[in-house]
Design a protein around this nucleic acid. Sequence first.
DNA 1: GGCCATAAATGACAATAGTCAAGCGATTGC
DNA 2: GCAATCGCTTGACTATTGTCATTTATGGCC
Lengths: 235, 235
Amino acid sequence: MSEEPNREIARNSLLLKSFPKSYVDTLLARSTWHSYDRGETLFLHGETARSIHIVIDGWIKLYRIAANGGETVVSVFTKGESFGEAVAFKNRKYPVSAEAVTASQVIQIPSNVLLDMMRKDLDVSVEILASTFTHLHSLVSQLEQLKAQTGAQRVAEFLLEFCDEEAGSSMVTLPYDKVLIAGRLGMKPESLSRAFAKLKPLGVRISRNHASIDDIERLREYTEEDPATSWNKVL
Amino acid sequence: MSEEPNREIARNSLLLKSFPKSYVDTLLARSTWHSYDRGETLFLHGETARSIHIVIDGWIKLYRIAANGGETVVSVFTKGESFGEAVAFKNRKYPVSAEAVTASQVIQIPSNVLLDMMRKDLDVSVEILASTFTHLHSLVSQLEQLKAQTGAQRVAEFLLEFCDEEAGSSMVTLPYDKVLIAGRLGMKPESLSRAFAKLKPLGVRISRNHASIDDIERLREYTEEDPATSWNKVL
DNA sequence: GGCCATAAATGACAATAGTCAAGCGATTGC
DNA sequence: GCAATCGCTTGACTATTGTCATTTATGGCC
């Protein structure tokens, strides 16, 4: 296993990149590398968490099976992102399940190793807190989107997340299956299709797993439009 | 200001109750007490966070105004609950706004005071992480509910959260305005009304701000029913 | 090149939830 | 006691989205 390029990705991951270099070495030395095939399960809802996960390559989805059998995709992580921070420390149980949606490589850092490090340096604690906060923030955004936007608007916002440019046109590669995108956005694949159709007049073209956007600004404006003159006027 | 009963509530708050007693004293000595009238704002989305909030009395809603003017109630906190942990440490900006929905009393602990304490004792860090995790977990639940359940089911689940009993019948006091409940559940007040109507045949009676439930088990089963034979079958 | 398997789009229909307007009921104030 | 008001409920209508069946690519594969 040629670990060098992977180590590089791990070092630059959102979680570790602001850690002191010497710490990262210790951390990586004490953590384990894993490869998962498409469809393989990392852990199931209810299992006790003992480590933090950093995605090196591929896509991992966090989902939840409701009592009635429906699946909810909570989030999807890719290269450089991490999850499970907050859960691991108290050896709590995972509130979600995790599955590889493509062949993936993942580093798992045992929580006690990180606890040791937190003991040594407050900054490590603060960094972890910050990373947890990012997840919290993204969940809040999702809630907001789901509650206050139409399907097509959510799709538009989702596409914009993958644009590097601020304005003008752009070509983004859709990261995973349409079914999964639909799940992540809280709709059925059919509705996703129709949402794409609605975005076509706005200069969005979908082909295969690529989307081309003619005018990013225009799409962003659409995102901020009223679903119908104010959604929830509490006051 | 008679602080004694309030101190007691603070000590027993979800965040502080597992802290060593001596720490809590220091913490409380260095934090500030605040009273808010109904409708008063604690902080606005985008402000820099400098402290953690513990609700002593009343109800505080966390909400977000979308670009299009729609309001999303992200969560509602009451006696003994805390919020803002993860955001305060890096002096990041609040991702949501906070407003008192009833006259409320709130303790604010400056983040640097807590940072000092984290420096001294790892357990404090871990407790904070755990409390943040609880919020994360509750957001995940909300996402799941919103994505996988009908309006009436969400209302049912919401009511069940306030039942202490496991089965049999129960009488719960609705915590806040119907408008706010509707917001928290991602629907309009009108839809909330209709949802209540749908629950009536299941033995749920609403009068004023009280709800009586004839059969908790039956309601729970309803909660777990299929909105229509499996919602999101990814795979 | 033609054929099969799978993924995606579409059309018809039903269910759910938002919109707007009207109606009720209780509380408050004069 | 009566009117004004506020909070909530209802009803008629519309829009959005899920459901199911069908059609249309698309990509291997022999």
